[in-house]
């Protein structure tokens, strides 16, 4: 417990522990002092931030980041790839669905640093230049959305659903798309779009 009159400082406690195990040319006392006096934010961040390198839509990003940043927030807030949406932040809606090494995942429930060395595809990376991906075109054709907020997640999920081989019939599509909530309720149109792409037989 902190003493009554001591000013609580969570960063101080954190740095004290961290600097003991981090390869920073700084004694724990010096690190704490730096933080206490807010003398050098960079020194503190050198301890707090973690290096990582992720390929996103074909571009490699090498960064040192706060390990608390989720992949979703990295995309939206750091890289301004806002096509990936935050709908719940707890893996309960699917709006944040992206592909990591080809697999659909909820980007809100994975730390960015856990994706070091991986390849991420977001909705911005799905189309081939100005040519829409067949799933994007099918969503427009079948009106598979209204407000559009769940749409990038639905589309990323739908592409994976076909690639996984889970789009053989309406029932299977519905089951394997249930991780993507559409509150506007365009579900039947989304299912129709997926069926059309599946029937098109193209290698997506």
């Amino acid at each position: 417990m902190e003493k009554e009159n001591a000013t609580p400082n969570p960063r101080r406690d954190f740095l004290k522990k961290s600097s003991l195990i981090t390869a920073v040319a700084l004694t724990p006392t010096a690190a704490i002092k730096a933080a206490d006096n807010q003398l050098d934010e960079r020194i503190a961040q050198a301890i707090e931030n973690v290096p990582c390198s992720i390929e996103i839509n074909g571009t490699k990003h090498t960064m040192k980041i706060d390990p608390r940043i989720t992949l979703l927030d990295l995309l939206r807030e750091r890289l301004h790839l806002t096509g990936t949406k935050k709908g719940c932040d707890y893996g309960q809606c699917g709006a944040c669905t992206v592909h990591v090494d080809g697999q659909r995942v909820n980007s809100c429930l994975t730390l960015a640093v856990m994706n070091d060395g991986k390849k991420v595809t977001t909705i911005e990376g799905l189309a081939n230049g100005s040519e829409l991906h067949p799933m994007q075109a099918a969503f427009i054709k079948h009106d598979g959305f209204q407000c559009g907020y769940c749409t990038p997640g639905q589309i990323m999920s739908a592409v994976a659903c076909i690639r996984e081989g889970h789009a053989d019939n309406e029932g299977e599509i519905r089951e394997f798309m249930s991780g993507n909530i559409c509150r506007c309720g365009a579900y039947p149109n989304i299912v129709a779009a997926i069926q059309e792409v599946k029937k098109g037989g193209k290698n997506i």
Binding site: L81, G83, T122, I123, E124, L132, I140, F145, G148, Y149
Partner: peptide
């Protein structure tokens, strides 16, 4: 008519408040 903003919505280009 197909949605006039459909392409923006399916490509992630549509910008919502926090974006």
């Amino acid at each position: 008519l197909q949605r006039v903003d459909g392409k923006m919505k399916v490509t992630g280009a549509a910008k919502y408040a926090a974006e």
